[in-house]
Each structure stands twice: as C-alpha cells, then as structure tokens.
Design a protein around this nucleic acid. Structure first.
Lengths: 209, 209
DNA sequence: GTTTAATTCAAACGTTTGTTTAATTTTGTG
DNA sequence: CACAAAATTAAACAAACGTTTGAATTAAAC
C-alpha cells in the first residue's frame, strides 16, 4: 500500500457518497480500508477533519480545466458551451462519490469552515461559466439569460440523475441493478445530448422573444 | 395539542430536512416536539417507520394537482407548461423540508420499501408531465425532446437552489443569513422566470434545428 | 547496532444511539 | 364512581458511536 492516508480517503469518499457522512461510521471506513480503527484518528484527528481533508484533496477538481477552456481563443462560445457540457457530465460521472458528497452534505455540514469552502469552490466555477456566457452575449450569439440560474440548470440536471441511481435506472429503462459501468455509459451520452440541445435553444439569440 | 402524532411528524420532517435522517436522533425529535422520548416508539414503532409514516403522509403531495392540470381542456400546452413551472416551484418552496428529504435521503435509504415508494411517486409525476409534453408535440407546438431529461432539468434546477440555502443566498446576493420568508420570496420569481424562458425555448417547435 | 521517531494494534474510554420496560397518569365508557 | 383502555413517564437496556490509551512493532537516523 503506497499511501495509506490517501487510501483511507478514497474508501471514506466511497462510503460517504453511498451512505452519507452521518450514515458512515469510522469503523466502516477502517474495516473497508483494511486498517486499524485508531489509524483514522492518527492520520486525520477526527472523522470531521477526515471530511475536510477529503474536500481539500478534491477541491480543485474542476477549476483548472474551466480556466483553460476560457482562455482558449480558438473556440467559439458555442464550442465552449458544448465542451462545458461534455466536461461537466464526464467530470461528475467519473467522480460520483465526491459529487454526491458535495451536493448532499453541503447543506448540513456542521463546520462553517467546510461549508464556506464548498461554497467558494462553487462560486469560482460559476465565475468561469459566467465569463463564457457573457463572452457569447458580447459577440451577439447568446441572448440575455439568468446566468446563475442557467448554471443551476446545468448542474441540477446532472445531479437529478446521479443522486438517485435506482431512480435513474428506472427512468432510463435499464435493468434494476445494472453495473456502475453500464449505468455511466448509458447515462452520459443522453445527458450530454439533452444539455447541448437545451442550452443551444436557451442561449441562442435567434430565440429571443 | 390537537394531533400529537402529526405534530411529531412535522417536527421530524423539519429536523430530517435540516440535518438529515442519520443526523437526527429520536431524542432531538422528542425534545423539539416537547414529547417524551418513548412516545416515538409508541406511535411509530421505530425511527425508520417514522420516516415511512412521514413519506406516506406527504406522498400524494403533487400528483392530484398534476392530474387536474392534465385534464383541463381549456389550457393550451404552453399554458400547462407555465402552470407546471409555477406549481412545482411553489410546491417545493412551500414544502422545503420534505423536498430535501425526498432528494437527499432517496439514494441512501436503507429500506427497499421506502426507496421503491419514493421512486414510484416520482414515476407517477413523470407520467403526468410526459402527457403534457406529448400532447404539445401532437399539436405540433413542441419539438422532439428527451422528456425524462427535461423533467430532470425542471426538478434539478429547483433542487440546485433549495438543497443548499447558504449557496443560494450567496448567488442571489442576499444577506448571509436571510429569513426563510425573504429567501423564498426572492428565489421563487427568479426560478419561475428562468424555467419558463428555458422551457419555452427548449420545447418550441420553431427552434427545431 | 543502538537509539529515536513513526506507525500499528487491541483494548478500553465515556457518550450517544434506538428501543424497551414497568409503573403511573389520563381518558373514555357503562 | 368504577373499570378498562389508552397515553405518558422516568429509568434502564444493550449496542454502536467517535476517540484515546499505552504497549508493541516497524522504520529511519546516526
């Protein structure tokens, strides 16, 4: 085991994502990670600080790519929107546990520190997306829209199908207990196609009323 | 106290919505409800069955109105979509705790019974919305869209601003700790306006590509 | 090879958890 | 009023919780 600390974090991430922070005991984590119970206090100090460490580890998981996307002068605003959709769908589906933690525990996390950290991550991403949209507006490609709400639509649509997998499987007419792999490969293209079509119509200045 | 049983359910709803099912102890509930600890087992049998009772109580909270909306022959599909938006935004904002339970606990509820119940509620609502959209398509007003994904967009957009109130306040540039009342009165019209504009562009057959 | 520090461990700590008990009080009925 | 059923209570239950302890083991440094 190369880095035991990170291994514990990964296991905790899976369990928190699946059963929630309060629904997961440190004994669950120790057992699944194959380490002694006391190691969690040894490495992280407490269960809550373990969560903080996890968030710190994954915090920048979107920002870098968004910034790059923004700087790319060769892409039209429409290209950027489509890449944004691709990027977010893939990003969420490839980091399902952490995404679920972000969007499930964000509200009721006890520590102000963690909550503010999560909010600031979201705000930073919102800024980048805002830049893309205002750029499209200045180039007279996009119409006036409520940008913050539009970002809520993007993230909310994805979340509505990732937060409850049994429901998603039902909707998508997949088998009742389908593998993680086929779940993602079925969901991703459908989410992408829908969001591209949706944002295309929503943003297009030709659809101005 | 007229109906103590229902009072306990209401208090539990608030706490579950705020701190999650696992984050709420039966002692928390008893204390806030002003009843003896043992009354919860006396009335409901267990904490888990209390949650089941709560879901049973609020289960039909959307279906009836949706069905009515569908039957109303005097409304055009566009009217129905707008009413649908109005209805859902109001419904969610007026039942925030239960909505949060539905969309937060749905994934990780241990009991298959509860999970299947929640899924069947969602599926029933999806059916009604599907009817509205297919009706609009038959009347050559709406274009071809992914209906299940569109419903996900509707619910997901709302949820993204109700699941994390501190974040929503930040985005909406409200004060840091604004009252429940002003939070709702600021959020509701903005959500409605955005969703109407969004669905208008998304569904309009004139925006077919 | 010895010494020091870092790691791992089984066991126990004191709380809190959901639930049950058994006695008591309140309520409704004849 | 008398009696049975329902409701309420304080106290206790065992189990699970997050965390700490102190000894044992491993690794690193000199």
């Amino acid at each position: 085991m190369a880095d035991k600390r990170e291994h514990i974090l990964t296991v905790a991430e899976e369990l928190f994502g699946e059963k929630g922070f309060d629904g997961t005991s440190v004994r669950d984590i120790a057992l699944k990670a194959g380490v002694n119970l006391a190691m969690i206090s040894y490495y992280f100090g407490s269960k809550e600080k373990l969560l903080e460490s996890l968030i710190e580890l994954r915090a920048g998981y979107a920002y870098g790519i968004l910034e790059e996307l923004n700087k790319d002068q060769s892409l039209s605003p429409w290209d950027k929107i489509n890449r944004l959709v691709e990027f977010y769908v893939d990003r969420v589906l490839n980091n399902l546990p952490f995404h679920n933690i972000m969007y499930r525990e964000a509200t009721n996390v006890r520590s102000d520190e963690i909550r503010d950290r999560l909010i600031s991550i979201k705000m930073r991403n919102l800024e980048q997306i805002t830049k893309i949209i205002t750029d499209g507006q200045q180039k007279k490609l996009f119409r006036e829209v409520d940008i913050a709400m539009t970002v809520g639509t993007l993230m909310g649509t994805i979340s509505s199908y990732t937060q409850s997998r049994p429901y998603a499987c039902q909707i998508l007419a997949l088998g009742y207990d389908v593998s993680e792999e086929t779940y993602r490969t079925k969901l991703a293209p459908r989410l992408k196609a829908h969001l591209k079509q949706l944002l295309r119509a929503h943003l297009d200045i030709k659809n101005e009323e």
